[in-house]
Simulated assay, not measured.
Amino acid sequence: MGSFNLLTVLRPLLHYGLHFLAPGLLAFIFFRDRWKKAWLIMVATMIVDADHLLAKPIFNPARCSVGFHPLHSYYAIGVYLILLFFPKTRIVAVGLLFHMLTDFEDCQWIGLIN
């Protein structure tokens, strides 16, 4: 019987909590007049994870997404930063950048668990 590791339980809880719940908080703080719509848009930015389908294996818990997958590349992150400067793309940019931050946070767990 394997040993129980609390970090292996906390990692996905924190990761997916940040992907789904934290954008709601960000939407409420920064886009209060339209926070529900902003939250849905930010959650919809998770479509960038479609680039995981290009990798083999598609999911590898020991692989850092940031800097590996095309839509998680530093070039893509640069584009997401530029999108912040345009009011029409700002909510999408916040969602994408927070997604990258969440994935970067997940990368920090790799060294703790492995």
Score class of each variant (00 low, 15 high):
L54P: 02
V92C: 04
F30E: 13
H72F: 13
V66Y: 13
V94W: 14
K37Y: 12
K56A: 08
M100D: 07
I82Y: 06
I58A: 11
S73W: 10
R32E: 08
W39M: 03
K88T: 00
G67W: 12
L25Q: 04
L26W: 12
S65L: 12
W39K: 03
Y75V: 12
I47S: 14
L54K: 15
T89Q: 02
I91M: 03
L84F: 10
L81N: 03
K37W: 15
W39Q: 01
F59H: 13
C64Y: 10
M46D: 14
F30P: 09
P87R: 15
M42E: 05
V43T: 05
H99N: 08
V43P: 00
L40D: 02
F28N: 11
L96G: 05
H99L: 05
K36L: 15
A50H: 07
R63T: 10
Y74A: 06
K56I: 14
R32W: 12
V94M: 13
G67I: 10
P61R: 14
V48Y: 14
H99W: 06
A93N: 01
N60R: 05
D51R: 13
I82Q: 07
I91K: 02
Y80I: 03
M100C: 12
V79P: 00
L40C: 02
A55V: 09
A44H: 09
D51H: 12
F59W: 14
H69Q: 13
D33F: 08
M100Y: 11
K36P: 00
P61D: 11
L96F: 03
A44P: 01
H52E: 07
F85N: 11
S65W: 05
Y75K: 14
C64H: 14
W39D: 02
N60Y: 06
W39A: 03
I41S: 09
N60F: 05
A44Y: 11
L40W: 11
R34T: 14
L81V: 10
A76H: 11
L53K: 03
P87W: 07
A27V: 05
K37R: 15
L53V: 08
H69Y: 15
R34A: 13
Y75R: 14
R63H: 07
A55R: 09
L97H: 06
F86L: 08
F30Q: 13
W35Q: 06
D49V: 01
W35C: 07
L26P: 08
L84R: 11
S73C: 05
A38F: 10
K88A: 04
L83D: 08
K88H: 07
F86Y: 10
A50Y: 15
D51Q: 13
H99C: 01
W39G: 00
H99K: 07
H69N: 13
F86D: 02
F59D: 08
A62I: 07
G67M: 09
K56L: 10
A27N: 02
L83E: 08
K37A: 08
Y75C: 07
S73K: 09
Y80V: 00
I47Q: 08
T45D: 04
R34P: 00
L83C: 13
A27T: 05
V92H: 06
V66G: 12
V43S: 01
L97P: 04
P57A: 06
M42R: 04
V79D: 04
F31E: 09
V79G: 00
L26N: 06
F31C: 11
N60L: 03
I91P: 00
R63I: 04
